[in-house]
Write a protein that binds this DNA or RNA. Structure first.
Lengths: 204, 204
DNA sequence: GTCTATATACTGATAGAC
DNA sequence: GTCTATCAGTATATAGAC
């Protein structure tokens, strides 16, 4: 039997573009309604096709949320990878810059992550394992950078690198919630910078 | 027309006890499954009656979650009210103690609050307004205490009371999420105490 | 006060025409 | 690749017997 290969680059591009449209629609729906409450019909309608048409591109609701998460992760790692390799303050600064640009350029995606990371604490949640591993990885990599900061004499005496890492990650999540309730009142990146400055002996 | 008053104290007590059983069941169901995903049937089953029987005591799902929240708030305010009136470090210490005892004695209720406060960021969520007002109130009362701490010379130079309040509330929410993913790794009260100690000039 | 039975709506997913 | 039609499951809520 023969499988018909796409005859032109155009077909691949069109399909990929459709998937992107669906992912964008899913971000908007899931970030305001939540993953459980946000329906495939809502996503389909926003993407401009029927619910059955949507499931031609992604076989299940889980595949859609998975695509959303991996798509953002790919782009986030591109933005942070070089600074993460360098470590120390460079890594921390890049993280804050990333948060700042995320909030400015894709607030709905930021919203989705904030809501979903709390939603997925339930052990049988479809993306529980994803967030579980993500927290472990983020905490470890931030702690490593704070250890380097401490070794360079840039961390105040008595502040443990493991604590600083945990506080920074917690502050990010917590400020995001406050931001979602009152967006005008919270400037996340500035707030995190001021907080970190109290832990450091050098200018951030 | 005449309304039949309860003939004995027993009837009130029995009905009140039933409502408490339902509230306890609701806490357990909603904290693990989330508010949307947790069903009235689950709550009813755990409370030992049918779903229709449950709706005799609370006319809708919303009334149940509302009862859960106001019930906890009443008890939380009892525990914190005196210290809150005194203000300053006394208030902050009492807040941390309350978090510690909540986590030890009613972890599922703590879990429910953490998940629900993120869930309810959506503007059309049934308890959005409740959490919106709660954050405004908590932030204001904690900021007031940090102003008193600053006036007493107990706050490190350069730390703004408004920032300290925002950071403390954010840290509580963020650590709760980390705790839900890895309960063995996070001692919330200790972590918050160590964090606040870095902002203060006196022993907490 | 509690039950069974049911109304009504919406969910994710599938079948099959085009 | 997209559609209509539909399935089976579950949700909240109601009606009415007991």
């Amino acid at each position: 039997m023969t499988t018909r290969p796409p005859s032109t680059r155009g077909e691949y591009a069109r399909s990929a573009a459709r998937r992107r449209e669906i992912i964008d629609a899913a971000v908007e729906v899931f970030s305001t309604a939540g993953f459980h409450k946000g329906s495939l019909r809502d996503v389909a309608e926003r993407a401009g096709l029927s619910q059955a048409g949507l499931l031609h591109h992604f076989p299940s609701k889980y595949h859609i949320i998975e695509a959303v998460l991996t798509w953002r992760d790919t782009h986030a790692r591109e933005a942070i990878d070089e600074a993460a390799r360098e470590g120390g303050l460079t890594h921390i600064r890049a993280l804050i810059d990333l948060i700042e640009s995320n909030q400015r350029d894709s607030p709905t995606l930021t919203e989705l992550y904030a809501v979903l990371s709390a939603d997925a604490t339930s052990r049988d949640h479809p993306v529980h394992d994803y967030f579980d591993q993500r927290y472990a990885w983020v905490l470890a990599s931030v702690e490593k950078s704070f250890q380097e900061i401490a070794a360079a004499g840039q961390l105040r005496d008595g502040v443990e690198p493991a604590d600083a890492a945990r506080w920074m990650v917690a502050l990010i999540d917590g400020l995001q919630i406050q931001w979602l309730y009152d967006r005008a009142a919270v400037d996340m990146a500035e707030e995190i910078r001021r907080f970190l400055q109290t832990l450091l002996t050098v200018e951030l």
